[in-house]
């Protein structure tokens, strides 16, 4: 079954997924060792992991019988993208404000 594709903010809005990411920010872990830390069923853990993977936050590599999860940069790029978007947004809006106020000064003098 296909999981709904969530955006970066929806992905980290979930406390369990945030905790998973926090753990992976320290070390890459197998799905089994990750699951041990959570009081939920294996399918529930797998579902969260799939969501993290499809949003680009983690990668999963098969090593022998084990599946290893590690952080990926892409998920965080999406968050940075929002910040960049607003940074540029404000910069251009404030430029317009500056021009407006300067024009006002000119007409007054």
């Amino acid at each position: 079954m296909a999981e709904p594709r969530l955006d970066a903010f929806q992905v980290i809005a979930d406390a369990s997924r945030r905790q998973m990411l926090m753990m992976l920010s320290k070390n890459s872990l197998t799905i089994n060792s990750l699951a041990e830390n959570f009081d939920m069923s294996r399918p529930a853990v797998s579902k969260h992991i799939k969501i993290l993977q499809s949003a680009g936050f983690i990668s999963i590599t098969d090593k022998g019988r084990e599946r290893h999860c590690a952080l990926r940069k892409e998920g965080f790029d999406a968050l940075n993208e929002w910040l960049r978007y607003f940074d540029q947004f404000w910069e251009s809006k404030l430029k317009t404000l500056e021009n407006l106020l300067n024009d006002k000064l000119k007409t007054k003098n």
Binding site: F9, I12, R18, M22, L24, S25, K26, L71, F76
Partner: peptide, 16 residues
């Protein structure tokens, strides 16, 4: 708030 409550953003960037 989604970012800051979690502390994930900082942790992640630090992790990287």
């Amino acid at each position: 708030t989604v970012l800051e409550n979690a502390g994930v953003f900082e942790a992640m960037n630090k992790g990287w």
